[in-house]
Design a protein around this nucleic acid. Structure first.
Length: 241
DNA sequence: GTACTGATTGGCT
DNA sequence: GCCAATCAGTACC
């Protein structure tokens, strides 16, 4: 089920595919990018979109839009976390913190990392599975002033949301947003967006504690040729779809 | 109850 | 490249 949400721009179903080859702009061309990536024509993605294996959902989330009020971000880098994955928070089983991970796909899972950073995940797969996709990086599309205020940046600097902590900060979310549905209008939403032309894959970041096969698993996905990706990009390489 | 750690970031050398 | 910040969650006694 897909529903239209944008109250101001109630246009007919957009030709999302037609825009799918839209180029991702350099930071200094942000204003131009805004006019080209017409997120406002996009529709909210329904629960079915999310209720697939995290490895399937992760690359599909690239290019999609995250919206909270006036702030709109475009997803450029993600990581998949799966059941029986020694790097997944679900490995602890259902706890107060991880309960949303085991809920039905399409909800947010937000947790605090290092006591300071709020990390946004999109819960994947069916209820009870325990899978999620971490949103690692985003391109800012709308609400630059709000983002800069939240990040304490001056307006001269480009807004680079190249890391999960920065994404959470730009959206202004806290752990209270954990378990929030992403497929209902209002609050935090995920909207359809253009598919990236090429995708990079590589190993996930910061999970050295996991078992070797999970440390080396290529479950990190990023939009190729896009500046909003956490470095080092050496660990990422092309994957043709 | 206490101890340890982390899906990070930004500043300093 | 190195390291401190900062605290909820988990493990263990």
């Amino acid at each position: 089920m897909i529903s239209k949400t944008d109250h101001n721009d109630a246009i007919e179903a957009p030709s999302v595919k037609a825009k799918s080859k839209a180029q991702f702009q350099q930071p200094q061309l942000l204003s131009k990018a805004n006019s080209q990536l017409s997120f406002h024509e996009s529709m909210i993605l329904g629960p079915d979109f999310f209720q697939v294996d995290a490895l399937v959902l992760a690359p599909r989330l690239l290019g999609k839009f995250l919206r909270r009020d006036e702030v709109v971000l475009q997803i450029t880098e993600v990581e998949a976390y799966r059941p029986n994955d020694t790097a997944c928070h679900g490995r602890f089983g259902i706890t107060a913190r991880t309960a949303p991970v085991f809920g039905p796909g399409g909800h947010a899972y937000v947790y605090l990392c290092y006591g300071l950073h709020t990390m946004l995940n999109v819960v994947a797969d069916k209820e009870g599975v325990g899978a999620a996709v971490l949103i690692r990086s985003c391109a800012p599309i709308r609400g630059l002033e709000t983002i800069q205020q939240r990040r304490g940046q001056n307006t001269e600097k480009p807004v680079l949301l190249t890391g999960p902590g920065k994404v959470g900060q730009a959206l202004g979310i806290s752990t209270e947003w954990s378990n929030h549905p992403l497929f209902t209008p209002g609050g935090l939403e995920i909207l359809d967006g253009p598919e990236p032309e090429k995708i990079l894959i590589g190993p996930r970041v910061g999970i050295e504690y996991a078992s070797p096969e999970h440390v080396s698993a290529l479950w990190r996905f990023a939009v190729a040729g896009c500046p909003w990706i956490r470095k080092p990009s050496k660990t990422l390489f092309f994957r043709e779809f």
